[in-house]
């Protein structure tokens, strides 16, 4: 295995089979993928294609049953124990008994940061996601979009270079979603993190990513990897340009190809 210097995630022949009561489910089969430092990689595909499972394998929340995977050149478990990544779930998952600032402080408390350090980081990350002024609010006093932004702040608060996001905006309406996508790109440009992003929206994947991984179900596998040549600076109306539409068409074709054997 030849992992290049700047690869963050390196998967070779990765497979994961769940044993359920109804028999075996092949969630992932022979997945080969490299995520390089500073990339924004989207995983797109219909439900059941294993995109979330792949993200959870990177995060050491699931154990692969075949193949190898390294995160920062180590096993996912070691990477997790070294707090190598921040994970944003489908729902915000904020603790209702903690204020927004205490929620952001949660990982910092667990990782043993000093009091002043925690205070500074709360201030900095809440500013990054435009939530300054909401420090003392409880999660249930905020809208869904604000809660999700707070959960992103929580994942950014500690020094992980890798940010894993599992359909973070799936439950939000389209206007809020556009807004958060725009903010996420700015945030990515400012922090230079590597981002793995699961979605089922083609425009979202094309708009955000430098690399789009198209996946198909039964068994979950990678059918296409599309390198996007869109500029890093992306206003929202880039979505009307021919370059954008060409990439979107290729993603759609890839998704359709993955489905064809079912017809």
């Amino acid at each position: 295995m030849t992992a290049s210097q700047n690869s963050v995630v390196e998967a070779r022949g990765l497979g994961l089979t769940f044993d359920t009561g109804d028999g075996q489910v092949h969630a992932l089969s022979n997945v080969n993928l490299t995520i390089n430092k500073g990339e924004f990689v989207s995983f797109i595909g219909p439900s059941g294609c294993g995109k979330t499972t792949f993200l959870r394998v990177i995060a050491d929340l699931e154990q692969p049953t075949a193949g190898t995977i390294t995160v920062n050149g180590r096993s996912p478990r070691e990477a997790r124990e070294q707090r190598a990544y921040g994970y944003v779930f489908q729902a915000a998952g904020l603790f209702p008994w903690r204020t927004i600032e205490r929620n952001v402080a949660l990982p910092l408390e667990i990782m043993g940061y000093s009091k002043e350090e925690i205070g500074q980081r709360i201030h900095r990350t809440l500013e990054l996601v435009n939530l300054t002024g909401f420090e003392k609010k409880y999660p249930w006093q905020l809208s869904g979009g604000m809660q999700q932004r707070a959960s992103i702040a929580r994942a950014l608060a500690f020094d992980a270079d890798l940010l894993l996001m599992d359909e973070p905006f799936g439950a939000l309406d389209e206007i809020v979603r556009d807004h958060l996508n725009e903010q996420l790109l700015k945030l990515w440009a400012r922090t230079e993190k590597t981002i793995g992003f699961v979605t089922h929206s083609i425009p979202e994947a094309v708009y955000l990513s430098t690399k789009i991984v198209v996946m198909s179900p039964r068994p979950g596998r990678v059918t296409d990897v599309i390198e996007s040549d869109l500029p890093r600076e992306r206003p929202l109306d880039i979505r009307e340009t021919p370059e954008f539409l060409a990439i979107a068409a290729r993603v759609r074709d890839g998704l359709r190809a993955g489905h064809s054997y079912e017809d």
């Binding site: 050491d60 929340l61 707090r83 994970y87 998952g93 603790f95 949660l106 990982p107 667990i110």
Partner: peptide, 14 residues
């Protein structure tokens, strides 16, 4: 406590 919250704590190596 929910599964997601437990997974979250796990990602922090808590």
């Amino acid at each position: 406590a929910g599964h997601m919250e437990r997974d979250l704590m796990r990602t922090y190596a808590s």
